[in-house]
Amino acid sequence: MNLFGGTISKLENSLNYAAMKNNTISDNIANADTPGYKAKDVQFKNILDDTLTSSIQAKRTTEKHIPFNSNQNSSYRVVSQSNTMYNHNGNNVDIDKEMTELAKNQIYYNGLIDRINGKFGSLQTVIRGGN
């Protein structure tokens, strides 16, 4: 039995995603002048894709086929963006884009914190008996 209905665990997963995205953006900003550095991004796996691939019974006929089951424990992953080059030194960090992403992620993170504080406030009210 899940005491909190899964909301707190979903908020926790979202906070973990936001923290990972913040770390990745910070790494990109810190390496903006590093020759050959390729910008990284954190991507959510699409829940619809997960649902579809788990319900489809597919068969690989050769080893060259992409497997349908990915056994990753987290719902996000860090990927390098190696298909672009902005600077003459092979670096593809766009500092303006990274700063915008950092601001968006901070707003997202703060919203999650407000939401989880509200959940804990509601629990605290219930525990105190409505006082």
Rank of each mutant, 00 (worst) to 15 (best):
D33W: 14
K21H: 07
A18H: 01
S26G: 15
V42A: 06
T51Q: 04
S55W: 12
A30C: 12
T53A: 04
N46S: 15
F68D: 11
A18E: 00
N16W: 03
S55V: 08
T61A: 05
S54D: 14
N28Y: 07
N28H: 06
K64I: 03
S54M: 13
T53S: 09
I47E: 12
V42R: 02
E63I: 09
K40S: 15
S70V: 15
K45I: 03
N69R: 06
A32C: 07
T24H: 10
T24Q: 14
G36I: 15
D27H: 11
D41N: 12
A58I: 06
T53H: 07
A32G: 09
A58W: 09
D49H: 02
K64F: 03
I66D: 06
I29R: 09
S55R: 09
Y37R: 01
K64P: 01
F44A: 00
N69E: 14
I29S: 09
T53V: 05
I29D: 04
N71T: 13
Y17K: 07
D27T: 15
N69S: 12
T53C: 02
D33R: 09
L52C: 02
A58E: 10
N16L: 08
T62R: 09
T34Q: 02
G36H: 12
T61P: 00
P35E: 11
L52R: 02
S26Y: 04
L15H: 00
N16E: 06
Q43T: 13
F44M: 04
Y17F: 14
A58D: 13
T62L: 11
A30H: 13
T53K: 04
T53N: 12
Q43V: 07
N69Y: 12
A39Q: 13
A30N: 11
A18V: 00
L15N: 01
A30D: 12
K21W: 00
F44V: 12
I25D: 00
A58V: 06
L52Q: 02
S70F: 11
G36V: 15
N28K: 04
K38Y: 01
N31P: 08
A30W: 10
A32M: 05
D50Q: 08
